[in-house]
Simulated scan of single mutants.
Amino acid sequence: MKHLLLGFIFGISLSFISWIVGMIVNSILMKTEYYNKLSNLNFIENKGLNKTIGLTYFKWAVKNTFFKFFNQKLKVDSKSTDLAQLRNDMIYSEISHLIGFIFVTFFAIFKSFEVGFIFGLTMMIPNILMNLYPSLLQQENKRRIDRILKIKTVANKV
């Protein structure tokens, strides 16, 4: 029980730290040729699977709790919102969270051997909720923006 609680608390702490690590590494990655490839990641394209893993509930929590105050750049205020810029901001957030997820995962694997499997496993719970799910949500929102931008492009050609 001790490892369960301590792993969870350590996972929360490390996940917050991983956000900063993710932003720093992402800022460096932006200057490479690989960044364009990373900007088109899509792990789960199936809406049904997103719903099955609880992304709908996570989306509700982000929109209706204190999480909505975390990244104010990632919201549509009006019809005049620059969707291309919003998409770029989402890509930055998505990749930063993925880097953070990988960062904490390495720590969880290390701590699984050093402290115990339960400790490492419970570290992954906050990591999934604070890094993986936000990244998956950004991917879903990015796909929605892509559909809107595609419709606007077709409408402008007509």
Rank of each mutant, 00 (worst) to 15 (best):
K2V: 04
K2A: 05
H3P: 08
L4M: 13
L5S: 10
L5C: 06
L5W: 10
L6D: 02
L6V: 09
G7P: 05
I9Y: 08
F10I: 12
F10G: 09
F10N: 13
G11Y: 08
G11M: 03
S13Y: 08
S13P: 01
L14V: 10
S15V: 08
S15G: 09
F16K: 11
I17S: 13
S18D: 05
S18Y: 07
W19P: 00
I20A: 14
V21E: 03
G22K: 12
G22R: 13
I24R: 12
V25F: 05
V25C: 02
V25R: 10
N26G: 02
S27N: 15
L29V: 03
L29T: 10
L29E: 04
K31M: 05
Y34C: 02
N36I: 13
N36C: 07
S39K: 14
L41K: 14
L41S: 12
L41F: 11
I44R: 14
E45G: 15
N46Q: 05
K47C: 00
K47D: 09
G48P: 01
L49M: 09
L49T: 15
N50P: 00
K51V: 03
K51S: 13
T52L: 15
I53R: 14
I53H: 11
I53L: 04
G54V: 04
G54Y: 09
L55H: 08
T56G: 11
Y57V: 09
F58G: 05
W60M: 03
W60D: 04
A61Q: 10
A61T: 12
K63L: 05
K63P: 00
N64A: 07
K68L: 01
K68Q: 11
F69W: 07
F69M: 05
F69L: 06
Q72Y: 10
K73T: 06
K73H: 07
K73P: 00
L74E: 06
K75A: 02
V76S: 09
D77E: 15
S80L: 10
T81G: 06
L83D: 00
Q85A: 12
L86T: 08
L86W: 04
I91W: 03
I91H: 06
I91K: 15
I91A: 01
I91D: 00
Y92R: 15
E94L: 06
S96F: 01
S96T: 11
S96H: 08
H97P: 01
H97W: 01
L98G: 10
I99C: 02
I99P: 01
I99K: 13
G100H: 11
I102T: 14
T105W: 09
T105C: 08
F107I: 09
A108G: 08
A108M: 03
I109E: 05
K111P: 00
K111Q: 14
S112K: 12
S112M: 11
F113A: 11
V115S: 08
F117W: 10
G120W: 04
M123Y: 08
M123Q: 12
M124P: 05
M124A: 13
P126V: 07
N127V: 04
I128L: 11
L132W: 08
Y133C: 02
Y133V: 01
P134A: 10
L136E: 00
L136P: 02
L137Y: 12
Q138T: 01
Q139P: 02
K142H: 09
R143W: 02
I145W: 07
D146I: 06
R147C: 03
I148F: 09
L149S: 07
L149Q: 14
K150E: 07
I151A: 14
I151N: 14
K152G: 00
K152H: 09
V154K: 15
A155R: 15
A155W: 12
N156M: 10
K157M: 07
